[in-house]
Write a protein that binds this DNA or RNA. Structure first.
Lengths: 129, 129
DNA sequence: TCGTCTGTATTATTACACCTAATACAGTTG
DNA sequence: CAACTGTATTAGGTGTAATAATACAGACGA
């Protein structure tokens, strides 16, 4: 049993789906700092996917600072590194803009969108917050 | 001069960048319902891009109901078709979830994220709202 | 009616990303 | 030492993105 939830689907690169699944698990504390990740080969076997594909995902996650890899011993969830405020904004801006455009295209008001975001936030983090 | 803003960049399919640029122009009323789009060949020439690439973007936009194409006369911005509420949610849910995960990864609180969204909303729509 | 515009379709070619496969190597651990 | 770990390399197969060169039918103004 993998320590993160994932349902592989067509239409999106597998390694990107793994990256998002791990990020989500970290964001929701299903994976906590210091926790050891299953090995590349184990994840590969569990998902029925080539080890190189998993390796690519792990590589991305270490590049982004989500994981820290130690050859010989394994990969671990890294401590959260608080980024500077300006960097936070730059990283999220394109995503926010896209969400606003799509939201407007579907006829949602800003208030409706925010309500939807708050509901989704609760769903993801569970009711224990 | 094209009726929508676009800065072609590497790393993302050109036709997807065109799709987003047109959607954004429609969302911000820079392109209004009934307005005629420049022809495929004109857009192609202005962007220095192959006509087939532009055609692919136009095709996506008509499929999504943003544009309505009339062979012989041109492509026009379609009337906004209010979708059902449940469909709105389904379409936006993955985007919202991704934004929340990325936001958490950068250490932003839910309140900070919503403030950032509101600021971005004002920037996009200008101060005349 | 004719020429020119419109969207659309087709075929071919090049380039690149994704994925799989099969190894290989060095470091860590029991 | 044996078995695990992350990592690197090479190869092949597949699909998409983008360009290029045409072609055709419908709309429209002169």
């Amino acid at each position: 049993m993998l320590p993160f939830l994932i349902n592989l689907q067509l239409g999106e690169p597998i390694y990107e789906q793994i990256v998002r699944a791990v990020k989500k698990a970290v964001a929701t504390s299903q994976l906590q700092s210091g926790a050891q990740m299953p090995s590349v080969r184990v994840i590969s076997r569990e998902l029925g996917v080539n080890p190189n594909t998993v390796q690519k995902a792990i590589s991305r996650l270490t590049d982004e600072g989500v994981l820290a890899s130690h050859p010989g011993s394994g990969s671990f969830v890294a401590d959260r590194q608080p980024s500077l405020h300006s960097q936070q904004i730059k990283a999220l801006q394109p995503l926010i803009e896209q969400l606003l455009v799509e939201s407007a295209h579907h006829g949602l008001s800003e208030a409706e969108l925010i309500t939807l975001i708050q509901k989704t936030h609760q769903q993801i983090h569970g009711n224990d917050h």
